[in-house]
Design a protein around this nucleic acid. Sequence first.
DNA 1: CTGAAAGGCTAATGGCATTAGCCAATGCGC
DNA 2: GCGCATTGGCTAATGCCATTAGCCTTTCAG
Lengths: 186, 186
Amino acid sequence: MGRAALSPDAVVDLALRVVDEEGPDALTLSAVAGRAGVATPSLYKHVRSLAELRVLVSGRVMGELTEIASEAVLGRSGDEALRALMDGWRSYAARHPRRYSALIQAPRPETAEAGDRLIGIMFAALRAYGLEGSAAIHAVRCLRAAMHGFAVLEAAGAFRLAEDLDESHALLAHMVISGLHTARER
Amino acid sequence: MGRAALSPDAVVDLALRVVDEEGPDALTLSAVAGRAGVATPSLYKHVRSLAELRVLVSGRVMGELTEIASEAVLGRSGDEALRALMDGWRSYAARHPRRYSALIQAPRPETAEAGDRLIGIMFAALRAYGLEGSAAIHAVRCLRAAMHGFAVLEAAGAFRLAEDLDESHALLAHMVISGLHTARER
DNA sequence: CTGAAAGGCTAATGGCATTAGCCAATGCGC
DNA sequence: GCGCATTGGCTAATGCCATTAGCCTTTCAG
């Protein structure tokens, strides 16, 4: 084996740095190669294409989000778990806005496993509400939509007014929670 | 003036067609030029750059969304108005998923006016709840997050299970509404 | 009828992804 | 210690795209 200064993981590390510092649109093979101190075509020894690199980056971000989410839910249940999950999610996105923007929504086989774990955590966070079958699925979808919507907008800087974002987010959590508590008699 | 076969608006029309048929990533000056039956550089007589074209496309989409939203709210109030707004929003995004994905979140001066009108409609939809000052702003943010999150995920095909999406969306609306009704005593 | 501007064109430049094919170092099996 | 396959780097070449420069024709205002 030649000297392994680089590896697929190392390439993804560098890619994440590019994303964090210059935004997702600046994620380019030549930018990564520049940071690696290597000629662009050399990256193809570690990564199949730019498209694949994007998927790998997205997978890494999903993994980080999964870690945050599972810590948030651990040892909590019910409203408390849900609030912690939502807060953790939001704070990750706020701390790493460009990274969050690099998340790929469209389902891809390569990130399916990471995505499923994330969804699994949401199900777990909702366990205390005793939702059966379809009801749990609808609830997870709504939770996902709420968290993702808020995160995307905040990351993009779309909330321009001075009002406290923590308070806005607390209201969002309240909506989800109160909606779940009153979902039966709809 | 030379024969005006093309115009900025016409270019945006063609761009929208490209987006609808091939997705936002396929929006390229040369693709638009191809459809216009014109050489790529000729487009620069109508549009400053690809970046500007994207902004124009986004503005057009915002305009369409504004129209849908204002129709939905017209003549309704309270829960009914809110549900109609959310349904209209979702159905636009579902009908034109790629177009919806071409919406630019980051605030830009060029689309500020269109964006403000859209926000204005959300405020109007919430009028019946009697929210004062900051409370209204937090509510609009949450409404936006919920609608946008659901729309993005649905447009990206991120909801993969067979469960009825109408029902999921109805639950989301229920969350927003019930959260608003119980927001005082938080 | 004239001339200026509008709107099209071709040519040229430079960034980027990707492919092909070359070469050096490395470390495994002997 | 040693040969050699593999690994991982390199350069060269291709092709697509955005963008700029500079030209030419058509059209319309006066």
